[in-house]
Design a protein around this nucleic acid. Structure first.
Lengths: 156, 156
DNA sequence: AACATATCCATAGCAGGCTATTTAACATTG
DNA sequence: CAATGTTAAATAGCCTGCTATGGATATGTT
């Protein structure tokens, strides 16, 4: 049974993700941020007033995970949550001034971490790496009907 | 501030790792295994009687994380821990029969998950992907003195 | 209007990762 | 040998992820 961990994509992916997370965590700790808030912050910096459901739809994160993350973010003064006026089930998420002020430094930190982590690759290799990761992520997307290369035949 | 998450290696790495973990978790759940035990099991299938410290040295995992993982593994009947005869601080880790019996199916599951996750890539792309991940991991290895390209000059 | 259903979010409980600290055993040294 | 230091593992406490379940608010149907 040939299984060499250093040739297993899953094993390596896990390892790499931990390396990135450690690195980024160290860089944003001085900002009072943790890694888990990053995805939500990126969406909210782009457009806030989103509902939790909107965030879940944009990020491949479970609803419960997002609920917990948002709770920590609110506790830490990054967001406030207010009920939607016309639908009491929805909680709209708004950034605080503090969170807005962190956009620049936080993104700088992420860019620096990426640069460092990829510093052993050539420019071409970095492009390949990112492109391959995107392709792998695309592969495991059942939501969208896989686009039919030949066209036509779908089901009778 | 140009930061596009789908072009950020760290972001993508995190996403990919979660996809692999979800997939593998589903496959090994019927075996009564969880993903966190995998690295330790791979080492122990190779050679058991290792100490916790040995495992930590072989895997890029913190000591406390390993201690917790081993505790769960013992609870679940995958390993037993016995004090080293000549050094009472060391706990040697031994696989149970149950854990030995799981080697085949568990590795099959991992191979299947890798195959599925990479099914959107060509053979050549898969090789590239694995090789690039290895390179990135190598980059963040401070432990080993970076091998001196020119030779000579190290410190006076 | 009442009841069933669907939707949105929160909560419970666990795995697995981390840092920091504690405990136990061994090693060193005055 | 006693004090001090070092090493191996365990524990505390947190964050981030998951599944499963519950609670509250709409929505639809009779």
């Amino acid at each position: 049974m040939a299984f060499v961990k250093d040739q297993s994509a899953g094993y390596l992916a896990n390892h790499i993700a931990r390396l990135f997370a450690r690195g980024l965590a160290a860089r944003i700790k001085p900002l009072g941020l943790t890694t888990g808030t990053f995805p939500a912050l990126l969406e909210l910096w782009e457009k806030d007033g989103l509902t939790q459901k909107d965030l879940v739809a944009r990020l491949d994160i479970e609803q419960a995970t997002m609920a917990n993350t948002l709770a920590r973010m609110e506790r830490d003064g990054l967001i406030v949550r207010r009920k939607d006026a016309s639908d009491g089930r929805k909680q709209r998420v708004w950034l605080t001034e503090r969170a807005r002020g962190l956009q620049g430094p936080a993104i700088e930190a992420a860019i620096a971490e990426n640069a460092d982590a990829l510093s052993g690759l050539t420019e071409e290799e970095r492009r390949q790496f990112v492109s391959l990761m995107r392709k792998v992520i695309e592969t495991s997307k059942p939501e969208e009907t896989p686009h039919q290369p030949g066209g036509a035949i779908i089901s009778g």
